[in-house]
């Protein structure tokens, strides 16, 4: 036995840090992951810069009062923004008329009525519906919804291309989104609320509509706002089913062809193989894109606030 020298090296924090190679690797991995995460900020900046740059180009060259004219004919330098905004609102509005009852109905059924087995079957089927590409729904809207459904609602219609068919197609497309977000919100309502209602003698219908639905209202509103935002940004269904590829007069008649912001952009990009060139048509693409970006961003931020309110409550 030797006496422990008084100057024995104490274990310091440095000894517990491990080898320096290990530390270097840690640092490298952390930096790499952080760079990957920061990439989304770079992408956002790129989106804003590329939209704003060309949009500014457009604003500074175009006659501003002309933007409020009626009619959208970019190849003839007629850029009536109200025309395509009106078309967008008509299509998104019809879409919401379809998606609200279908989506909320599916959500209430899945959350309050369905047996676990029914849920296991129905939810994947709704996911399949959500996975149907929008080109396919667009063609379906043009070939099937327009002649079968819209012809009944619009007497004397001659045009296969119309806003109503596009709107219904968009509605079908956003139904699974509305259903899934609303169902998540209702499913998150605590059991105790339902049990309290049943304890008071309430029936399932009353419990669903008067207890669970109000408790989940923020999530349900968020589902509807997200649906609306998706409907406004939906492109292919409208490009295929709404017609008016070259341009459009101002029209809010659902039984007639029309143009939305998104369809106006694809029409510009497909009409000429070469988008660049063609005077103001190219920058106008970005101006419309920026409007669309601002609309949907505002709606998404609004919906986000509603979703967060649900989380805080329970």
């Amino acid at each position: 036995m030797t006496a422990i020298p008084s100057h024995s090296p104490r274990l310091s924090v440095d000894d517990l840090r491990g080898s320096s190679a290990r530390r270097r690797r840690e640092l490298f991995v952390r930096i790499a992951f952080m760079a990957a995460a920061s990439l989304s900020i770079v992408i956002s900046l790129l989106i804003i810069l590329s939209l704003a740059g060309e949009a500014w180009n457009f604003i500074s060259q175009v006659d501003l009062p002309l933007l409020l004219e009626r009619g959208w004919f970019p190849r003839r330098d007629l850029f009536g923004i109200p025309t395509i905004v009106a078309g967008t609102l008509v299509v998104a509005g019809i879409g919401m008329l379809v998606a609200t009852p279908l989506g909320l109905g599916a959500a209430i059924y899945l959350s309050e009525y369905a047996s676990p087995r029914a849920r296991r079957v129905i939810k994947p089927v709704l996911e399949v519906l959500a996975g149907i590409p929008s080109v396919v729904l667009g063609y379906f809207a043009l070939q099937v919804i327009s002649p079968v459904v819209v012809d009944q609602a619009c007497p004397g219609i001659t045009e296969q291309f119309n806003l109503a068919a596009a709107g219904i197609g968009v509605g079908v497309l956003i139904t699974p989104l509305v259903a899934s977000v609303a169902e998540d919100a209702m499913y998150a309502v605590p059991r105790s609320l339902r049990e309290a209602a049943y304890g008071l003698g309430a029936q399932r219908r009353t419990t669903s509509l008067r207890v669970v639905f109000p408790a989940a209202i923020s999530g349900i509103v968020a589902a509807l706002i997200l649906g609306l935002s998706r409907g406004i940004g939906e492109t292919m269904v409208v490009s295929i089913a709404a017609g008016a590829t070259g341009g459009s007069l101002f029209s809010v008649n659902p039984c007639a062809p029309g143009q939305t912001m998104t369809a106006a952009m694809t029409a510009l990009a497909t009409g000429s193989d070469q988008v660049r060139g063609a005077t103001l048509a190219f920058p106008s693409l970005f101006f419309v894109g920026m409007l669309l970006f601002v609309f949907t961003l505002a709606l998404n931020l609004f919906a986000d606030r509603f979703v967060r309110r649900v989380r805080v409550r329970y």
């Binding site: 590329s50 952009m265 970006f293 961003l297």
Partner: peptide, 16 residues
């Protein structure tokens, strides 16, 4: 928010 941006806007990004 990027997940909620309409896909066509990504097309504009790619184009620019």
């Amino acid at each position: 928010n990027l997940a909620g941006v309409p896909s066509i806007v990504y097309g504009l990004l790619g184009l620019a």
